[in-house]
Design a protein around this nucleic acid. Structure first.
Lengths: 235, 235
DNA sequence: TATGTATAGTTGTATAGACACGTTATGTTA
DNA sequence: TAACATAACGTGTCTATACAACTATACATA
């Protein structure tokens, strides 16, 4: 039975619950979910509320629904599309990603407001993270995300995948990005963080990530002797 | 008032009606839509039904909805696709592209064979081109393409868009690419071609272009003080 | 055996109403 | 005039219910 007095919508919490069950492998790909009416009983919800949760999970590709048969855990796509997170990139190379948060505060959006589609005075969190692959520092990444979008952001463990965090905790599924690539020389700041002995060229990657509206802005510097960024493009 | 006896669901027909109004410019980008309750009255539908139609249009990116304000026709994204040729990139910045062929020969594929899916001993054309935007050299690009794929390649004017040439002359439509980005320091060769006074970081872009099978392999070096590469990525 | 039929269980579509909560404009008060 | 309250109106969430459409199974019939 879900708590009636929670400020978080019931359909949203139900989504979380189902996603968790899938993540914990209590529900495996292909497995049938309980029927809508069973969810109604189990959590004391009306059917429309349950349906809202299931519908959204379907649109996110988490489950598939078949009229007259039921709902099933989706079988994940094998093919990785163009957009890949650092975590995914490192793991796909058979290495272990690690992340250290090196800076965390909030500032007015300023010029970022334009990219993010918000007022220049609106507050954004600034999170700088050092990214490692098999203990070797390979990138410094700074993320700017509107405070209003992510309540309690400061209390959360940011050492994992930001994509996953946004999806599981805030229900924000990143769908696309606009990314620019350029080459720059390392600065003393970056050299210190990346443990570089000398000045070297770094790959600078600037991205705005979108759901339908902009979600967050990110600037990263990669040691390109250690790490190439590969993307798949279409049409 | 919608026909109650139609086999097509009401919410679906309402979506069509709204889409048509947008297409006919009765509703222009940014315009507010009638409120949910007004749609209810006008078509004799319940609010949930109207909401289903509007919700789906929102997810399709046709409209945007704002709590407390209303629903609005979405402003279409200007978005060009992910894959853009040099010619397109330069022209979209309002500059004039120019190209000089600086090298043309044929060599055995060697290690390129792996990328191109051909035998290591198969011949490939090597075409190096200097790319300029408004007379300023911004990139050196070397293309490797199997000789068998492009008969009479040596007789052709290569100073234009390679995409267009492949499409119009050989009927090969490039559909996707796999592209890697990294940062390197300029070498004396590149400095001479790009008319650089001193060593500077360059953006190195390596791509394999596909129709269904690989078509050609390309390595480019961009002056990244002059030129950023921007791509749109999905999912 | 093969075919049709009834039935139970599933999701899909739709109604009517209630309250919560954000936004905007207006009017009132200090 | 400036700041604050309020009302009107918008979307967001949720309940309770009904019937339609589809699927799978069991069972009866030709």
């Amino acid at each position: 039975m879900l708590d009636k007095k929670s400020p978080i919508p019931a359909y949203f919490r139900l989504k979380q619950i189902i996603r968790d069950e899938i993540k914990r492998q209590d529900l495996k790909p292909g497995d049938p979910l309980p029927s809508e009416r069973e969810y109604c009983e189990r959590f004391g919800l009306s059917r429309m509320t349950v349906r809202q949760a299931l519908k959204e999970l379907e649109l996110e590709g988490v489950i598939v629904r078949e009229k007259g048969r039921g709902s099933f855990v989706a079988i994940p796509r094998i093919e990785q599309e163009g957009l890949m997170s650092f975590t995914e990139m490192v793991m796909s190379r058979g290495m272990t990603p690690r992340t250290e948060v090196v800076e965390f505060d909030s500032i007015p959006a300023g010029e970022m407001g334009e990219f993010l589609g918000i007022d220049l005075k609106e507050e954004v969190y600034r999170v700088a993270r050092l990214r490692k692959a098999d203990r070797v520092p390979v990138a410094v990444e700074t993320v700017y995300i509107p405070v209003l979008l992510v309540p309690d952001f400061e209390k959360i463990d940011l050492s994992g995948s930001l994509y996953e965090l946004l999806s599981t905790r805030y229900g924000i599924e990143v769908r696309s990005s606009r990314t620019s690539f350029s080459a720059v020389l390392s600065t003393p700041d970056l050299e210190a963080l990346l443990m570089l002995e000398e000045t070297m060229p770094l790959l600078k990657v600037e991205s705005v990530y979108f759901h339908t509206k902009p979600v967050f802005y990110e600037v990263s510097y990669y040691r390109s002797d250690q790490f190439k960024i590969t993307v798949n493009l279409n049409r």
